[in-house]
Write a protein that binds this DNA or RNA. Structure first.
Lengths: 240, 240
DNA sequence: CGAGCATCCTTTGTATACAGAGGGCTCAAT
DNA sequence: ATTGAGCCCTCTGTATACAAAGGATGCTCG
């Protein structure tokens, strides 16, 4: 199970650890993945092997390997004799995704509360207390806020110490990142989220597994509500 | 070329409608998968592309595709310059797997209770009531009992109506089937399990999501306890 | 006798050639 | 004009040839 953390925001955040001698299939996989996640290849886009191989600059063999991985990621679907398609994401799919996410994140929070190193989460707490200030610092602050959330998620994953769970969560987060673009930058929501995150952190520090799980449940409920509202609004605006 | 990528196909229960003209990569995938799941290729077994391609009777290209799928299934792991290995399953891994399973099956039971068609589960209830009799009918009865459990799982999946959740559960069940061989055929445990399953079914029929989730939690706790005990015993016997 | 280095060999990664299947297009008939 | 059938063409699935990387082994030097 190859995990690739290419955070797809236009940020230039890779420490650039030399130019990696990536294999062709790896390059093809990453490029297609980023393009799908960023929406450059919108859902429903039909793709052909030869065409994409030529565009990316690899032969069909590594491209097919890349596509196979994307299929198992659920980002594209195979078509019988006509190439492959970028999978659609409907509102119904988002609801379903959140139902899975609920189950996974609650369990992750539970396990983290049981196994955490308190020091790690106390440090995170510090940062989340001052998170609202970040939101006043424009685009860059918001970007750093999202990074902070990533740090929290990773800390919870690490504390939970369950590779299977982390793997399932990574898959969910992959799909979520296709949605997050929609609901990005809602100040009010982000401030509320910071409060919710603080409660989760406190529960984990206290070793209160049930509270951690319930706080996570509440947080995700609010998150889903916000996402659905943002999509509704978007759709309404588009109808104007 | 009609190639259907049955991504999370549990494979076992195909009515075997003659040998369809499967693609070479599909054949290779299924064969390797079955061999790993059945333990013919025990954990730790090192495999080479050429060697396996020759054995199965396909060329390296489709074999590589098959291995790629097995890797994303988590059944094998890639080695840098030395082929690939069937992944190990330690006791610790089993515990972790059950932690994930808990989260997923509880959510599935919850959703099933909310969305089920009562008639389906009333029919299943009938069968589970008479399940203990099956256990008296020897190996064949036990086999039919396991089929019954499969039916229940599928009914819950269908009622839950969440493809993402089902996909995650299929992945977990794939790994579980490697373990189940160990704890197979413990009569006392199977009788107890039938009772637990009945409670889950009743909760789903009643539309009681919380009870369904808790009953599932209890059931999985007992299941894990039983599996770990069986392994302990096995290890002890082997030490003799 | 041990350690380091170079070389060989094994095994993967990639490209390309070929075959078959499926869909689309054209042409004709009603 | 519309619909059906047949043909062609495109695109996938597979095999194989080639290249490069990594490890193991043996040789040499200290």
């Amino acid at each position: 199970m190859t995990v690739v953390y290419t955070q797809t925001d236009s940020g230039v955040r890779e420490p650039v650890t030399a130019s990696e001698p990536l294999t062709a299939s790896e390059r093809a996989y990453r490029q297609l993945r980023v393009e799908i996640l960023d929406g450059d290849l919108p859902p429903g886009t039909g793709l052909l092997e030869v065409e994409q191989a030529a565009r990316i600059g690899v032969s069909r063999t590594p491209l097919r390997a890349a596509v196979a991985r994307l299929i198992s990621d659920g980002l594209v679907a195979g078509r019988s004799g006509r190439g492959f398609v970028v999978t659609e994401i409907s509102i119904e799919r988002i609801r379903e995704l959140y139902e899975l996410r609920q189950a996974l994140e609650e369990q992750a929070a539970r396990l983290a509360a049981l196994r955490r190193d308190p020091a790690v989460f106390r440090a995170l707490r510090e940062q989340f207390v001052s998170a609202p200030e970040l939101l006043l610092q424009g685009e860059d602050g918001i970007h750093r806020y999202y990074d902070l959330i990533d740090d929290l998620e990773r800390a919870i994953d690490t504390a939970g110490a369950n590779p299977y769970l982390v793997g399932a969560l990574d898959a969910v987060r992959t799909h979520l990142s296709r949605i997050r673009r929609l609901a990005r930058g809602n100040q009010a929501r982000l401030r509320a989220a910071a409060t919710e995150h603080l409660l989760i952190i406190d529960a984990i520090i206290a070793g209160d597994a049930n509270l951690a799980a319930h706080a996570t449940h509440v947080h995700l409920h609010q998150s889903l509500t916000s996402v659905l509202a943002a999509i509704d609004e978007e759709t309404a605006n588009r109808a104007d």
